[in-house]
Amino acid sequence: MIGIVIEALIKSALIAFVLLTAFAYLTFAERKIAALMQVRKGPNRVGPWGLLQPAADGIKLIFKEEVMPAGADKVLFFLAPILTMIPAIVIVAVIPLGPDVELFGRTIRLGITDLNVGLLYILAIASVAVYGIVLAGWSSANKYALLGGLRASAQMISYEIALGLSIIGPIMLAGTLSLQGIVQAQQSSTWYVLWQPLGAMIFLIAGLAELNRAPFDMPEAEQELTAGYFTEYSGMKFSLFFMGEYIKMVAVSAIATTLFFGGYLGPFVDKLPWLGILYFAIKTVGFLFLMIWIRLTLPRLRYDQLMAFGWKVLLPLALFNVVITAVVIVFVG
């Protein structure tokens, strides 16, 4: 009993540490990749190749003045960034990072836990993740912030449906809601992206919309809303929102890897289980690169186009995908 608790605590701490480091270097990678794609140099002053830039940014943000708007609701203004940050970290708990390994005479699962309702857990956390953003918009006592918060939540609720439906494909193929089970089912067949190309695409698009990232970054459209729901935030609270967004990027990439790209599977994983983590990391980084690439390539959508696309194109397509998958499973097997 105690052993399980200690193991869970160590793994949770490790994963939180990895996620926070990933956040820091993801911002750096984004700036560097943007610079390369735009034929600039990017951050290159702090440390070799600018590698210490995230640390410098962090120190700067810690020492920035925290401003509280006059009419703000103090409790919720303080709570909102935390509520945005926590779901982003917590959602990673059910993602398997590798097969079971032997360490100090114990069998240890790589990944914090494996629920038999793992995918429902992900959907549940995703649906609660809206609160931080809505409350940030409302508590700031600022019209731009409120509009940004409302836009964000409307967008997240709309795309959540397509996201949930795109997940049903892998569930039906694997016959389980556990993520470990879905990964293992992909060992005997192949990666589900081959069976579910439409589902994978819908998941990626809806995932980008859930993240409020370009080209779906309507809630923070600078020209219309200054910065949307975090207009009034500064210092560490502001960086918590940023952290939330980037950690959610990692989480969505990890979930996409698990559901459609075989998770930790790869050559020789059955002999060397630790390789699983490496494969998983490579695939996740690939998705992160794709997200940055998309942001640098596509312009922002208009709000009515975004909603029409979500409800009139993505949702029917996702439903169609579910029906086709069910028919094929029943008749072909």
């Binding site: 309702v117 959907l123 549940a124 649906s127 609660v128 809206v130 939540s153």
Partner: peptide, 22 residues
């Protein structure tokens, strides 16, 4: 009853209450 628990969070704590707040 993990299924009911997750449905409770998704439907009530997530979807419905966000609409209330809206």
């Amino acid at each position: 009853a993990p299924f009911i628990a997750m449905a409770q969070v998704t439907v009530y704590a997530g979807a419905i209450m966000v609409l209330f707040l809206f």
